[in-house]
Every structure is written in C-alpha cells, then in structure tokens.
C-alpha cells in the first residue's frame, strides 16, 4: 500500500488532481458557508453584472451570483457522480462476478446483455432512460448508473476469469467454502485494482454526463445550480456576458480533468506494468 502511495505521490499531475478534487469536496460540503449569496436568489439590479468585487465571477441573466451557483453546483456534480458511480460499481461488479464465476448460460446471457448495452452510445442511452424516467436529480443518477454498469460488469468479469482458477480459490473450494464466500472474500479483494481505477475514471464520465443531460434540458430541475444547466443558459446569453458561458465550463473541465489525472495516476501506481500506456 505504501508502495502505491509512493508511486502515486511522485506523479505531480495526479497529486494536483487530488488536491483539486479535495477543494471541490470542501466546496460541496461547505457550500452554505463558502458561497457569498443564496444561489437561487434573483436580484434585478445584478442582472449580468460583470465579474468584480461584488460578484467574483459575475452574475447571470437572473441576477444570481455565478460563484455561489458554481460552488453549489459542485454539490450536484459530486453527488450525482458519487451515487451514479456507486450504482454502476455495485451492480456491474455483482453482475460481472456472477457471469465470470459461474460461466455457462449465466455468462452467456449477461455478456449478451452487456454487448447490447454497449451498442448504444452512452449519451443516447442516458437520454432515452431520462425520457422514460422524467427529469429529476435522482433520475439522472439512475440513468448514468445504468449506462455505466456494463463497463464495470465487463471489467469484473474479465478479472474474475483471470483469478478464478488461481491456487487460493481452488484451495478455498477444496475446503468447502461456499460460492458466495469465495466470491466476496477471496475473489473480490483480488480484482479491486482495475475496479478502483475505473471508478475514478467513471466519476469524470458521470460529471460530464450529468452536465450534458442538463445541458440538453433532460437533466436536473431547471432552477438547480447545475453546471450543465448554467452552461445551457450561458450559451444563450454569452454575447451579453462571456462569463455566464465560460465559468461553468471551467468548473466542469477542471473536475473532469482532476478525476482523469487521478485515475491515470492510480493506474500507474497500482499496476506498474501498464505504465506509459496512456489510452
């Protein structure tokens, strides 16, 4: 473990990413104290105010403080990311492990289902699911969770296959340990590394996906300070104030970038063999 941390900490970019994620986390948890204004409060006199002392990042077309909205936006992004990825991670891992461990028709069926889901571009699948569920923050999380489940299932399945016949599994089986115990006690800890890497990278995807769905108007509630919604508004108003279109995008990019570099760093640290393969 120390090894891993050591290798990780030598990657300056990854550490930078970790720090930025930490900052977002602070913003998300302490939004109420950090944000100088109520993110919902509209003030006619502040409409499209330029960035300055009063509004650090300017005000939007409703006179709402952009900085406060972006700070509160980190709550939405991180929460959506956390829950969506948790859904995908748990559902995907369980399905993938079942398929990999039991093989045969379970594997056949699950693999085909995963293949089918992989045949839809993720954003299209998410859009269709959102259309079914209707727009709300909860549904965004579910939709993104479903969309990214197959990736985890595939990774878990592959990893299980690679350790399934290892000595320690055979040994456990020989002394009569049940399937369930074998899977969770013996196999799961040994396939964690790829899952952890994928989890980190999926955070980046989930934040992007939430922003994209909200941008298309099929995401969270319309007055919520979601970065995607702010960007959508910003797009219509950018000629009147560049800041409404620029800052939410910076927030998204920085968050996605951070999770990406941390994911890369983790991959390098957890699996030195893969070093340098940047894809």
């Amino acid at each position: 473990m120390n090894d891993v941390w050591y290798r990780f900490s030598r990657n300056k970019l990854a550490v930078f990413g970790l720090v930025v994620i930490g900052l977002y986390l602070v913003c998300a948890l302490g939004a109420r104290w950090i944000a100088p204004y109520d993110p919902y409060e509209m003030r006619v006199e502040s409409v499209l105010r330029e960035p300055g002392a009063e509004h650090w990042l300017g005000a939007d077309p409703f006179g709402r403080d952009m900085f406060s909205r972006i700070v509160h936006g980190s709550r939405i992004s991180l929460r959506v990311g956390l829950i969506a990825v948790s859904i995908a991670l748990s559902a995907g891992t369980v399905l993938g492990m079942l398929a990999g461990y039991f093989g045969r028709w379970i594997d056949g069926l699950l693999s085909r289902v995963v293949d089918v889901m992989f045949s839809f571009p993720d954003i299209l699948l998410a859009l269709v699911i959102m259309a079914i569920l209707g727009p709300s923050t909860t549904n965004v999380m579910i939709a993104i969770g479903i969309v990214y489940t197959p990736i985890f299932a595939r990774i878990a399945r592959g990893s299980v296959l690679s350790v399934k016949n290892a000595m320690f599994v055979e040994a456990a089986r020989a002394i009569g340990v049940g399937h369930f115990m074998i899977m969770f006690r013996h196999i799961l800890p040994n396939i964690l590394a790829p899952l952890i890497i994928q989890t980190t990278l999926s955070f980046a995807f989930a934040i992007l996906a939430e922003a994209a769905l909200s941008f298309l108007g099929l995401g969270v509630e319309p007055d919520a300070p979601s970065w995607g919604i702010m960007l959508n508004e910003g797009k219509n108003w950018m000629e009147h104030g560049w800041w409404v279109a620029v800052f939410p995008g910076v927030a998204i990019t920085l968050a996605v970038l951070s999770f990406n570099v941390v994911g890369d760093g983790l991959r390098d640290a957890l699996d030195p063999k893969l070093r340098g393969r940047g894809d």
Binding site: L13, A204, L208, A211, A212, F215, L231, G234, K235, M238, A245, V246, P248, G249, I252, T253, L254, V256, L257, N260, V261, G278
Partner: peptide, 15 residues
C-alpha cells in the same frame, strides 16, 4: 491530451 478528454465537447462548441 488531458484537456482534450476533459473539456466537454458542448462547452468547446460554445467557446
């Protein structure tokens, strides 16, 4: 490479 995969295409379009 990093910015490319992190910048959302729709934001890039807007910019």
């Amino acid at each position: 490479g990093l910015l490319g995969i992190s910048i959302p295409g729709f934001w890039l379009g807007v910019l």
